[in-house]
């Protein structure tokens, strides 16, 4: 069957099997490999993209189900050569290590801030709770999202301070 998905603002049309997963449409057909996969059971969230503006796990959605709809991936975050504040936040606050969960985390973070521009730490933890990170212990992801929120609120964002620390 033929499927057309508006991918980061550009229509992508491909002939696909009905069973093709959305994550494979994005990675294999459209060639955007920033979206990863990490499990088969919709638990890990490395495959999160936006479908019609909402984060979904693209390993659990058929490409056919996204036909005629719009999908935004990590490659669609940077606008006009300018990184999205959540991307900057993750760099500033060391919100990533191996980088594998990062694209999914970024998409969820962007959606959260669009809904709730000034989230608390608890709200951020809740928002990313369907996505696993094996490297960061989540601490710096939370700080990264806060950093982006503060930047967008016009708050005091210069180089983020090294986290609270006690030295003997």
């Amino acid at each position: 069957m033929e499927v057309t998905i508006n991918l980061n603002g550009t229509p992508e049309t491909h002939e696909v099997e009905p069973r093709l997963l959305l994550v494979h449409f994005i990675r294999e057909k459209a060639g955007l490999r920033g979206t990863h996969w990490g499990c088969d059971t919709s638990n890990c969230g490395t495959c999160v993209v936006w479908l019609d503006g909402k984060p979904v796990k693209s390993c659990t959605v058929l490409a056919a189900m996204a036909d005629g709809r719009s999908v935004r991936t990590v490659e669609g975050l940077e606008q006009g050569g300018q990184l999205d504040p959540v991307q900057e936040g993750f760099m500033e606050c060391h919100g990533l290590q191996c980088g594998f969960c990062t694209p999914g985390m970024l998409m969820t973070a962007r959606a959260l801030l669009d809904d709730n521009p000034d989230p608390t730490e608890t709200e951020i933890r809740e928002a990313i709770s369907g996505q696993l990170c094996r490297c960061t212990g989540y601490e710096n992801i939370v700080r990264s999202v806060r950093w982006a929120a503060e930047k967008e609120q016009g708050g005091p964002v210069t180089e983020s301070e090294t986290p609270a620390e006690v030295t003997a």
Partner: peptide, 23 residues
């Protein structure tokens, strides 16, 4: 044999870590 059965901690099981150092 899956992440439904082999559970890994999420952001909600982890507290905000409090770090200190000596050198």
């Amino acid at each position: 044999a899956s992440f439904m059965d082999y559970l890994l901690p999420t952001s909600l099981e982890c507290p905000s870590w409090e770090l200190g150092e000596t050198v």
